[in-house]
Structure formats: structure tokens, C-alpha cells
């Protein structure tokens, strides 16, 4: 997908609208999912996705291929989300019910009921993390970006990303061990 995205990007830089349409079809679901998980609202996620692509097209000429197109686009989405976040309430945690509904409706990595319960508990605990650590978890685990790509999107050093992920895993492990953590 990466090679295809880069070649499409090169064509789009020359003004090829069909390549740009292909880029949208290729990436908009991931960007929407990323923003949807962060913002927690369907309408906000759709608006943020539209703003992200709205910023990406004029800046397409500045994309030099130093990173992958997906990473570059996630960077724009990240800054778009930060701008939107500053205009929202300082702390609007993700409703746990939404994650419970998503976990029950979506495909689960575990087949048994115990596994689904653990997943629901885990995703709810992720939303209790502080904002910076939560964004790091979203990019690295949910969006499957590498450590270097996550660091580039967040504008951090790779070691900082590793430190934040370590903190997140410690928190999740400690809280998941509590018998009633997911009932809160």
C-alpha cells in the first residue's frame, strides 16, 4: 500500500485528480478511524477528516517523500485534531459505553466471552490515559505506525515514544489486574 500511495502522491503532485481520488479512497478510512477514536464523535470525526484532507491538498507540493504518505497524512490529522481539541472542553473523556458497543459489534480478536470483556476493559482504560500518552497509543497500536513514524507524527524523539508506551502498558497492566476496573 505504501508504494502505491507514494506513486499516487507523485502523480497527484503533478495535478492528476484521479490519483488524488485514489489517495482519498486509500487513506480516508484510517484517518477517519484515527480521528473518530480520538474525538469520540461521528460528526466531529467527519469534519476533522474533511479538514485534514483540505490541508493536505495545498501542502502536497511540500511532501518530499522523507516519510511515507500515510505518516505525513497522520501528522496533518494529528495537528488538525490538536487545533480542534484546544477549541473544545479541556477534558472530554471517551464514553465507555461507546467502546463497549464498538467492541461488541466489531470483530474481536478473541473468540470467547472472556476475551471480549478484556478488550472492552482495555480500550476503556486507554481512554483514561492522559492526552499525550493516549495519542501515542492510538498512533502506534490502533493505526499501526512504527515507533519512528509515531515519533515523526507527534514531533517527538523515538525514545520519548517508547517511554510513553512503556508508561501506558504499565498503567493498563496494573489496572487490568484489578477485578472491577472495567466496571467503573
Amino acid at each position: 500500500m505504501s508504494d502505491s500511495a507514494e506513486s499516487l502522491c507523485q502523480r497527484a503532485q503533478t495535478g492528476d485528480t484521479d490519483a488524488a481520488r485514489a489517495l482519498v479512497e486509500l487513506t480516508y478510512e484510517r484517518i477517519h478511524a484515527y480521528l473518530r477514536r480520538l474525538s469520540g464523535q461521528d460528526e466531529d470525526a467527519a469534519d476533522l477528516t474533511q479538514k485534514t484532507f483540505g490541508k493536505a491538498w495545498p501542502a502536497l507540493a511540500t511532501f518530499g517523500g522523507r516519510s511515507s504518505f500515510t505518516t505525513w497524512l497522520h501528522g496533518i490529522a494529528h495537528h488538525t485534531y490538536l487545533d480542534w481539541r484546544r477549541q473544545q472542553r479541556p477534558d472530554a473523556p471517551q464514553p465507555e459505553a461507546w467502546w463497549l458497543a464498538q467492541a461488541s459489534d466489531g470483530p474481536s480478536p478473541l473468540e470467547d466471552t472472556m476475551g471480549r470483556d478484556l478488550a472492552r476493559q482495555l480500550f476503556g482504560l486507554v481512554e483514561q490515559l492522559d492526552e499525550e500518552t493516549r495519542q501515542t497509543v492510538h498512533l502506534h497500536y490502533y493505526e499501526e505506525l512504527s515507533l519512528a513514524e509515531t515519533a515523526e507524527v507527534l514531533g517527538l524523539a523515538t525514545s520519548t515514544v517508547k517511554y510513553r508506551l512503556r508508561q501506558a502498558l504499565d498503567f493498563l497492566r496494573s489496572r487490568a489486574a484489578e477485578p472491577k476496573a472495567f466496571l467503573r
Binding site: 470525526a45 474481536s108 478484556l118
Partner: peptide, 16 residues
Amino acid sequence: ALLRHPPSLTPPAALK
């Protein structure tokens, strides 16, 4: 392993 499989999300139909 659990975190790498978050619940999938379907974007709105009109977004594309």
C-alpha cells in the same frame, strides 16, 4: 495484541 486489534469503524457514507 489486544491493542493492535481495535474495533473497526465505518465512516459515514457521505464522507467519501
